[in-house]
Structure formats: structure tokens, C-alpha cells
């Protein structure tokens, strides 16, 4: 029996897989966005709104990850968008390997923008790089303005944040300014988009950002 010293982080092999997947997606010109939030923050509702509003402008596909059931994929497919449901069989997050398997089942030909709808969970998904080009997080008004204090990592790992269900503000003690301050304290560079997918408020700014980021991603590919 011999001793082999590794000193290797547990996530190292995942980080490698993620970097490889990201490079391949760049080559293909597909921007993959990893969408993370708590259960019920409105991930699927937001995606339905985005797909509907950007129809004809961007070709969008969705990889739905859930522990069980296929209700989310069915809602997306009803819009005519390409969608695949991945079941994680109890796993609390998606890693790069599972994302790759899911994307292989989802035909990416002609797709500009793909969303990975991660498991509804504010903890584990933030710890694993999926290979996405951008991390987008949703925080819903009913969840409260203290969530950045309790789950800091996801706020730190995201390039943009959607504050969803803005139309419910009158019913909750949610201090938007305090929330913004707490988020920016953790992550000064993050973009914040307050929206209501129901009324459409704020959606234009978010959709413009998505279009710009997709164009940037595809442009970089041409120069590579």
C-alpha cells in the first residue's frame, strides 16, 4: 500500500469539466445561462415571459432540471420552445457532467440562448460550476429582503439578479433599497433587474440585457 498525496479540491474535476463545456458552447455560439433560485421564486414563469417576448429575435431552448416530475418542461414546450427535462434523482444541484448530458439531449442547432433551470435551492447549486457562460439568480419579493444575509454564496456567484414578483410589493414588508444594498455589499458588480413577469414591469431592461449578452458571447466566438 502506498500513499499518494493529492491536495485536490473535491470540485476540481467538476471545474475542469465545466471549463471544457463552456469552451465548446462558445465555439457553437450558444450562451448558456444557469438560472438559480429558491423553489417558487418564479423561474418557469419568468422563462415563459422571456421566450414569448423574444420570439423572432432570439432562438431560445430550456434545460429543465428537477428532482422529479416534468411539469416545467411541459409548460415551456407548450410555447413551441425546445425543452428537455433532466431528473437528478434526489441530487440537490446540477453539475457540469449532468448539464452536458442534458444539453446533448437538447438539440442546440440554431439556438442562440439556452437556459439551465437549476434545482430550486439557494445553497448547493451555487457551489458547482455547470459550465454556463453566466449565472442568473432570481429572488422573489415574498422571500424577504434578508435572503442575501442568509445565502450569500449564490449572490456572490451570480452576474445578474432578477428581483421577481414586483407586483406583490404592496403585500410584503420588503425594503427594495435595503435588499439592493445587501446584494451590492456581497457583489458590487452584479446587475439587478426588478421585474414582474405577470405585469411585464421591468422586463424590457432584462430582455435587452439578455440580447446584449448573447450578442457579446457570439461575437467573441467569431474573433476566437
Amino acid at each position: 500500500m502506498r500513499v499518494i498525496e493529492l491536495h485536490r479540491s473535491v470540485t476540481e474535476s467538476n471545474d475542469r469539466d465545466a471549463a471544457r463545456l463552456r469552451a465548446e458552447l462558445k465555439e457553437k455560439g450558444v450562451l448558456l445561462i444557469n438560472l438559480m433560485s429558491a423553489p417558487g421564486a418564479g423561474k418557469t414563469t419568468l422563462l415563459i415571459r422571456i421566450i414569448t417576448d423574444l420570439r423572432g429575435k432570439l432562438s431560445i431552448a430550456v434545460l429543465e432540471a428537477d428532482i422529479e416530475a416534468s411539469v416545467d418542461a411541459e409548460r415551456i414546450e407548450a410555447l413551441g420552445a425546445r425543452s428537455v427535462q433532466v431528473h437528478t434523482d434526489g441530487m440537490c444541484h446540477m453539475d457540469a457532467g449532468m448539464t452536458r448530458t442534458g444539453l446533448e439531449a437538447l438539440d442546440l442547432d440554431g439556438i442562440d440562448l439556452a437556459f439551465l433551470e437549476n434545482i430550486g435551492n439557494l445553497i448547493c447549486p451555487a457551489e458547482y460550476d455547470t459550465g454556463a457562460g453566466l449565472n442568473l439568480m432570481i429572488s422573489g419579493v415574498p422571500e424577504g429582503d434578508d435572503k442575501p444575509l442568509k445565502y450569500p454564496l449564490m449572490y456572490k456567484e451570480s452576474q445578474a439578479l432578477v428581483l421577481s414578483k414586483l407586483d406583490t410589493l404592496p403585500y410584503f414588508d420588503f425594503d427594495v433599497e435595503k435588499f439592493r444594498e445587501r446584494v451590492l455589499f456581497l457583489n458590487p458588480g452584479i446587475r439587478i433587474f426588478p421585474v414582474s413577469a405577470r405585469t411585464g414591469e421591468g422586463m424590457e431592461a432584462l430582455e435587452q440585457w439578455l440580447s446584449e449578452e448573447t450578442a457579446k458571447w457570439q461575437e467573441r466566438e467569431e474573433h476566437a
Binding site: 500500500m1 502506498r2 500513499v3 499518494i4 498525496e5 493529492l6 491536495h7 485536490r8 479540491s9 473535491v10 470540485t11
Partner: peptide, 12 residues
Amino acid sequence: NECIIKEIEAED
């Protein structure tokens, strides 16, 4: 907040 595989003992 680390989780590191430090070393292993193994047989060839």
C-alpha cells in the same frame, strides 16, 4: 469552507 482530498493509500 474547503473540502480537499489530502491523500489516499492505495495498492498498485
